[in-house]
Design a protein around this nucleic acid. Structure first.
Length: 575
RNA sequence: CGGGGCGUAGCGCAGCCUGGUUAGCGCGCCUGCCUUGGGAGCAGGAGGUCGCAGGUUCGAAUCCUGCCGCCCCGACCA
């Protein structure tokens, strides 16, 4: 491809709308353009990168025995009513009517449609296991789209669905996908971790997320320093050490005046205790009902854990004035003793002796508060966010926290959808049974953004070789010099002949602009044909990632570059 | 939806508070000259319903009201 024939509108200045680096660079390098909030056009280069990811995904899915199909993006409401998600899914599901007044939605995911396919087309255990996937544009009417390709409303996703006769088979299918995902992200040249995850709104029993490690990640992961354990903090179980049997004597409950002391730190300071001695009371709206959750004063409530403990579908923190309106409880002075709403507690709280809590009265706190004696929560469980002071739930080892970008998520669904939609097959024993399902997603467009978040510098993108739209860019620095131009053209066609994906910068631009653009685009190899060629007959090859420069005699350049690329690709190919 | 910010040329911004000539600047774009190894220089030029709709005023980019759009923080998630 010739640069002069390609639409690559690079921009020097960082667009004001872009906050994160991948978004800035995708815009600056001319990969994408925004249509409106959360909706992007992939320009030629952006589409090439996207298709690179898609090709790797496709190869590995096929290798794992999955079959590609393509389902409609528009889906009829009745399928969603069958699964129960027409009610449950919420406003993220974009709904509309056709000219006959029939209800439809834009597919945010395809469990319903694929289950419908399965129940029609798979009748016998002999046809199982089956794994079907597609690479397709999804639409989710996100509350707040942001960060360019990271969280668009429209995005490209690979979604696969497995159908098995029993749990054992489903586990096998799940493991196969897990392995395929490892291969996919390795082949993409990304640094990633698979972590245990919460199952969220898709439902199901067991799941892993694949996280690309990058500082700008929206998720926080805990990783064990000693064993293989890794989990999303939403999921990571806190394991308390053996109770030390503290023999501190229980004091009587006492009221103290704490005027103006609303924050944990201030109350602790004022009473001469540590935040660890305070029982923090947080009010959440759980499926529309206020619930008080207790954690130690120095801890954070993990909302996903709270949601799971209560088997709720929606949990959100209540604003201070809402708390007062709904419960007449004074924010800053709330406590579990005689609290008039539902009460749940973190396991750690139940071990506290002589704690300090609010008295549910403005300007008043209680001391000598003892769980069990002074209050009894309706539920006790693991409610708080894990910290690096906690031990690994598997081996007890030390933990580290890292930021990650979720690029893949795999679930064991069980029979949730097959039962709801009566999707059954006839088993060996002649009995009709529901399929045991799994679903497996990869945010294909998000992988492109994540790759950039992980690989860039002040000059632009540094694409991993397998994802780069072009492997090599040849710079003709003497467009008006016949000898240089001839050499650049020769190198270009030589590389093309060797199957190398090469872009020839044949624009009549000054060298500075060509260098800057080549860096910005993130093309891994840059071959410069210019002065050095005119003087010494040498081609200058620069590696984008390391900055290393290699001089190659013109006659050997094509073969040399092709060999380097081959070798580099081999590294991630043999996983 | 709650909280914060912003809409002026393709992009990045100034002007607005304190209303008043043809609304500026940098980048980009077009023409010519010159230049050619890290986003050169000179000269000339094109490009604007100042987000939209009302209102106040002799006069509105500027003041007021409403609406729309975009961005950031939270819930959501590939």
């Amino acid at each position: 491809m010739r640069y002069s024939q390609l639409l690559v509108p690079t921009i020097k200045e960082t667009p004001a709308e872009a906050e994160v680096i991948s978004h800035q660079l995708l815009l600056r390098a001319g990969y994408i353009r925004k249509l409106t909030s959360g909706l992007y056009t992939y320009l030629p280069l952006g589409l090439m990168a996207l298709q690179k990811v898609a090709a790797i995904v496709r190869e590995e899915m096929n290798r794992a025995g999955a079959q590609e199909l393509l389902m409609p993006m528009v889906q009829p409401a009745d399928l969603w009513q069958e699964s129960g998600r027409w009610q449950k899914y919420g406003p993220e599901l974009l709904r509309f009517k056709d000219r006959h007044g029939r209800d439809y939605c834009l597919g945010p995911t395809h469990e319903e449609v694929i289950t419908d396919i399965a129940r029609r087309e798979l009748q016998s255990y002999r046809q199982l296991p089956t794994n079907l996937y597609q690479i397709q544009t999804k639409f989710r009417d996100e509350i707040r789209p942001r960060f360019g390709l990271m969280r668009g409303r429209e995005f490209v996703m690979k979604d696969a669905y497995s159908f098995d006769a029993d749990d054992k088979g489903a586990s096998l299918s799940y493991e196969k996908m897990k392995e395929a995902y490892h291969r996919i992200f390795t082949r993409c040249g990304l640094s990633f971790r698979a972590v245990e995850a919460d199952t969220g709104s898709i439902g199901g029993s067991y799941s892993h997320e694949f996280m690309v490690l990058a500082d700008t990640g929206e998720d926080t992961l805990v990783i064990c320093n000693d064993c293989d354990y890794a989990a999303n903090v939403e999921k990571a179980a806190v394991v308390l050490p053996e109770a030390d049997g503290s023999s501190e004597e229980k004091q009587p409950l006492a009221r103290v005046e704490t005027p103006g002391m609303k924050k944990v730190e201030r109350v602790a300071d004022f009473l001469g205790v540590s935040p660890r001695d305070i029982i923090k009371t947080m009010i959440f709206l759980v499926d529309g009902e206020p619930v008080a959750a207790l954690v130690r004063g120095d801890r954070q409530v993990q909302e996903v854990k709270l949601k799971n403990l209560l088997h709720a579908t929606e949990v959100e923190p209540m604003a201070d004035d809402e708390v007062w309106k709904r419960t007449k409880l004074p924010v800053g002075y709330m406590g579990p003793v005689d609290i008039p709403i539902r009460l749940v507690a973190d396991q750690e709280v139940m071990r506290m002796v002589n704690g300090v809590t609010g008295a549910n009265e403005k300007g008043m706190h209680l001391t000598g508060v003892n769980p069990g004696r002074d209050f009894e929560p309706e539920l006790v469980g693991d409610l708080r966010q894990i910290t690096t002071e906690d031990g690994c739930p598997v081996c007890g080892g030390g933990l580290s926290l890292t930021e990650g970008i979720e690029v893949g998520h795999i679930f064991k669904l069980g029979t949730t959808y097959s039962k709801a939609m009566k999707a059954t097959f006839q088993d060996r024993d002649g009995v009709e049974k529901p399929f045991v399902m799994g679903c497996y997603g990869i945010g294909v467009s998000r992988v492109v953004a994540a790759a950039i978040e992980q690989n860039h510098d002040e000059n632009g993108i540094i694409f991993p070789l397998p994802l780069a739209p072009f492997q090599v860019i040849v710079l003709n620095l003497g467009v008006k010099d016949a000898a240089i131009s001839r050499a650049a053209e020769q190198l270009y066609s030589d590389l093309q002949g060797r199957g190398v994906e090469v872009l020839l910068d044949d624009r009549d631009e000054r060298p500075g602009s060509k260098f800057k653009d080549a860096d910005l685009l993130g093309i891994p190899y840059r071959a410069t044909v210019g002065k050095t060629f005119a003087k010494e007959g040498m081609i200058e090859l620069r590696l984008r990632a390391s900055g290393e420069t290699i001089m190659l005699p013109f006659a050997e350049a094509g073969a040399g570059i092709a060999a380097m690329i081959e070798q580099e690709l081999q590294k991630v190919q043999d996983v």
